[in-house]
Design a binder for these strands. Structure first.
Length: 501
RNA sequence: GCCGCAUUCGUCUAGAGGCCCAGGACACCGCCCUCUCAAGGCGGAGAUCACCGGUUCGAAUCCGGUAUGCGGUACCA
């Protein structure tokens, strides 16, 4: 059943789940599913100062929300690790990094470095001033045992540095093709363990990928330049080098790497706005990838069958919110009614909590409402604006908007009174859209009004707004008594104004 | 600075030597539908395929250079 394909998504819980991270996760997930492989979630929490359990939670729930399921890693419900390579949090794997570092030290592939941050900083400044690329000098690379002992006596705690061999490193990136980098440009021997013993990213990522038998490393382009370091480490650890695939970056509108500063990057913010998983997944997968055909509406299930790395774009892709909104509409319209109602419920509850509506519609009411809102919903959060007027006692009325553009106040008053009588003349039983419409059209005709103007006056009187679902359905949804009461109130408002002159 | 990667309509993309004086989608503009708003349908505008050279009968597609952009260059991830 499972192939040898093992991929992983390895976020750092130093911030909420980011759109770019989500897409990386998605590509990994789809690649694993398509190839019958295993998708692993690993938490890279070695940046203790910035990592928090809350962010980890956000990442797990966000990922789970999309419908992706990971085969190994922390369980989305309780955070407990599942899988044969546990633990999947790096802070619980510290022993492994120390073990691996000790092995490198023993083989003289790494060495203790006693340079202080201040010394290194000064060195870098000197190089910068001399217009040389920053690079570790290798001062501690050939220390004699007695020199090390002397530093130790001074009380200096060494960091551990990995020896960078003098050669060219090349690899065949699955999206970019052959990449070659001269190790001389890597900045010299690099630190794998801090002086306090905690491991650094470049080291942990390789130890873990090796330990977990990761076959394909699919990640963002920002790691392309660091890949040679990783290759060197894989080799030093005596492990096969995985295949690499570097994804194009998701960009801000100014074409810099997408950032919190310039864009909305947190998945949770999009969820709050009422974007749905189908749209999010579909939109994101098309940022930097295409089917190679003109099809662009794709479900997760279909993507699992069709995704391949070969249509991945090389250039970065600007995040286009308008297109996401369109995509959201596409998927919202595809949702079965019952499903839509379920997803709308939390948003209605939120409207209630915020005091924008005074009661929650029942499921029956929602079912009746759905045909008139389904086509009109850009996001789930828009539901309040669309039907909120039905669930409040009184609608805000403004005389300015009450009077249709081509009408004056007197005509509006006249029109609303006539409409009120016509509507009142409809019995409670026959209060149906196809009863109301002909009657009101006849009224308009008889009085020489444009039906649209009359309808607009009624619309605003009963809903308080100019953009609403179709008028007659709206009246029916409101019910005869409430419709009449709202007309009366609007009429009263106009009369009062007229009386005042 | 150095190293690396990239570059097709405003945006996401199709395109792997002739099917392309470049196709689709979003956004935009018109028209249709229409009681408003949407949705939908139809149509339009929008790309000298970054630039310059080369290879070839023929290049968006292959090669070289240039430019621009982005990324990396930490005892961050």
């Amino acid at each position: 059943m499972t192939s040898g394909v093992r991929v992983r998504f390895a976020p750092s819980p130093t911030g909420p789940l980011h759109i770019g991270g989500l897409r990386t996760a998605l590509f990994n997930y789809l690649f694993a599913r398509r190839r019958g492989g295993t998708f692993i979630l690993r938490i890279e929490d070695t940046d203790v100062a910035r990592s928090t359990p809350e962010y980890e939670r956000d990442i797990l729930t966000g990922l789970d929300w999309t419908g992706m399921r990971w085969d190994e890693g922390p369980d989305p419900d309780n955070g407990v690790d599942r899988g044969p390579y546990a633990p999947y949090r790096q802070m619980q794997r510290l022993d492994r990094y120390h073990e691996a570092a000790a092995a490198l030290l023993a083989a003289d592939l790494a060495y203790p470095c006693y340079c202080t941050p201040e010394e290194l900083d000064a060195e870098r400044k000197r190089q910068e001033a001399a217009h040389q690329p920053p690079r570790y000098s290798g001062r501690c690379a050939r220390l004699a045992p007695e020199e090390r002992a002397a530093f130790e006596r001074e009380g200096r705690r060494p960091a551990t540095r990995f020896r960078v061999a003098d050669r060219t490193i090349s690899f065949d990136d699955l999206v970019r093709g052959r990449v070659e980098i001269d190790a001389a440009n890597l900045g010299g021997d690099f630190v794998i363990l801090r002086a306090d013993g905690t491991p650094l990213y470049h080291f942990t990522v390789v130890v873990d990928d090796a330990d977990m038998d990761i076959s394909h490393v699919i990640r963002g382009e920002e790691h392309l330049s660091n890949t040679p370091k990783h290759i060197l480490l894989f080799e030093a650890l005596g492990h096969d080098v995985p295949q690499f695939a570097h994804l194009p970056l998701i960009l801000n509108p100014d074409r810099t790497k997408m950032s919190k500063r310039r864009s909305q990057t947190a998945l949770s913010a999009y969820i709050d706005e009422g974007f749905i998983r189908e749209a999010m997944v579909n939109y994101l997968v098309l940022l930097g990838w295409s089917t190679g055909t003109e099809q662009e509406i794709l479900s997760l299930a279909e993507l699992e069958q069709r995704f391949e790395l070969d249509h991945v774009q090389k250039g970065g892709a600007v995040f286009d919110r308008e297109r996401l909104e369109w995509m959201n509409g596409q998927w919202l319209r595809r949702l079965p009614p019952e499903e839509l109602i379920d997803r709308l419920r939390p948003f209605l509850e939120r409207e209630l909590a915020a005091g924008r509506i005074e009661r929650l519609p029942s499921d029956g009411e929602m079912r009746a409402l759905l045909p008139m809102v389904h086509e009109r919903l850009p996001t789930l959060a828009a539901i309040g604006d669309l039907v909120g007027f039905l669930f409040v006692d009184e609608v805000p009325l403004d005389r300015g908007v009450l009077v249709p553009k081509r009408w004056d106040a007197a005509t509006t008053l006249d029109g609303l009174r006539a409409a009120r009588d016509t509507i009142a003349g409809t019995g409670p039983v026959s209060f149906e859209a196809d009863e109301l419409e002909p009657a009101l059209r006849a009224l308009a005709e008889e009085r020489g009004w444009k039906a649209g103007d009359l309808f607009m006056a009624i619309r605003v009187a009963v809903t308080g707004r100019t953009a609403t679902p179709p008028l007659f359905d709206t009246l029916v949804a409101l019910g005869r008594e409430r419709a009449l009461a709202r007309l009366d109130r609007a009429i009263g408002l106009l009369e009062e104004h007229a009386a005042r002159g």
